[in-house]
Every structure is written in C-alpha cells, then in structure tokens.
C-alpha cells in the first residue's frame, strides 16, 4: 500500500504540475494535429484508399507525439535537482519508474483520446471501436514502459532531445508493428483469428518491456 501511495503521489504531482501550465499538453496536441493534417493532405493526393495507410499514420502520429512527452517527463525532474529529491526518499526506485510511467501513460492517452475523433473526420473512418481503443491502450503501455526507462538514460546526456528518439524508435519497433497490424485488422474487418497473433505479440512485448524496465531502472539511474 505504501508503495502504491508513493507511485500515486508521483503521478499526482506530475498531473497537477501539467494542469497548472498545460505546456506539454498543448505542445503535444498541436504537434499530433499537424502530423495528422500533413499526412491527411499528402496521402489524399497519391493514395486511392486512405484507409489502407490509416493504421500506419495513426501509430506514427502517436509515437511522434509521445516522444515529446517522454522527453519532458524526466527532464522536469532535473529542474532544481528534483530527481535527487526523489532518490533521497526511502522508497524502492521502481516506485519512481512506475510513477513516471503512469504519468506518461495518462498524458499520452489523453492526447490519443483527443486525436481519435479528429483522425476519424479527416480519414473518414470510425475509430471509436472498443477493440481499437484496447489496442491503442496496449500499444501506449508498450512505449510508455520502455520510453520512461530510456528517457531516464537520455536525460543525463547533453543532446537528450535527440538521444531519446534514437534510442527509443528501434526498441519500440515490435510494439509499433504489432499495434499497426492489429489496428489494420480491426479497421479492415478481418476476423480476429487472422490478427490475434499480433495482439498476443503486443501483449507479450508490453509484459517484457514492463518487466525489463522495472528490473533495470535502478541500475540505469544510480550514481
């Protein structure tokens, strides 16, 4: 219970700080919107069936926008040395990891929730489907899990804004591919049996990424 309280304290602190300024939320929103609009107009000119490329565009948008949040997540802890403040607390450092990861998950999910209706309109697709929402949630867990860990590595480097995508994109490729395949299956109305293995992949990668991040976070951040 104490562990959970500490995780929730970290999440709550991040949410309050963001709600106060909305700096990152508005940046992510505008960025995601721009990506969707640019893709929408560029594919409209060349691709006959936009629905075929929609899953890819959707996930590229989410991944790009999420990178902004992941970059900021640990960077805000560097201001005034707050990361030291967290490390000084008598708690397992995995509480810091889960707190930051859940915060990232909340912010990214909020942006995705706002983007889906806009995406639906621009691409003339119904994306508000329970199975698709579950897939998006699973995919988001995957890159929030590994992205939080990698942002802890990148935050101590001089070129952290560049370093995070360089580290993150190759590693989250399995999550993006699985999520895109499942999304395509759902939007095309293909029977579950044909894409269920991609869904299993997605769940498996989520579990692996969460477990590995949990086990290595202390090692990554220790001085």
């Amino acid at each position: 219970m104490s562990f959970l309280n500490k995780v929730l304290a970290i999440v709550g602190k991040d949410v309050v700080a963001e709600l106060r300024t909305k700096e990152m939320f508005s940046s992510m929103l505008v960025f995601a919107l721009l990506v969707i609009v640019i893709f929408s107009f560029s594919f409209e000119l060349r691709v006959e069936n936009v629905a075929q490329v929609a899953p890819g565009i959707l996930w590229v948008t989410f991944v790009f926008a999420s990178t902004l949040e992941l970059n900021r997540s640990l960077a805000m802890e560097m201001e005034n040395g707050c990361l030291d403040g967290l490390f000084l607390a008598p708690m397992d450092r995995s509480a810091i990891y889960f707190g930051k990861m859940l915060g990232n998950l909340i912010f990214i999910s909020a942006i995705e929730a706002l983007m889906l209706p806009i995406f639906s309109v621009l691409f003339d697709l119904n994306l508000i489907l329970p199975s698709l929402l579950l897939t998006i949630f699973l995919g988001t867990i995957g890159f929030a899990a590994v992205g939080t860990l990698l942002s802890a590595i990148a935050v101590n480097t001089r070129a952290r804004e560049v370093m995070l995508p360089v580290l993150l994109f190759p590693i989250i490729l399995p999550v993006v591919i699985s999520a895109t395949k499942v999304t395509g299956g759902i939007l095309d109305g293909v029977p579950l049996a044909d894409w269920a293995h991609w869904l299993r992949f997605l769940v498996a990668f989520d579990i692996i990424f969460l477990a590995v991040s949990y086990m290595t976070f202390d090692f990554v951040v220790q001085g």
């Binding site: 500490k6 304290a9 005034n80 403040g85 607390a89 509480a95």
Partner: peptide
Amino acid sequence: GFVSHQSLTYSKLTVEENLVFYGRIYD
C-alpha cells in the same frame, strides 16, 4: 535530510504542494 545547492523543489507546484508531496513519499 539533505539540503543541496539546488532546492529540490518543483517550481510549478505551490510551497504547500511541494511539502505535501515530499511528506507522502516519506510516509
């Protein structure tokens, strides 16, 4: 208790919110 060169406090949070946050993670 450690007082560093830096304040280790969150600039966007209020004075009270900072202390309550640290109080929670110290149980």
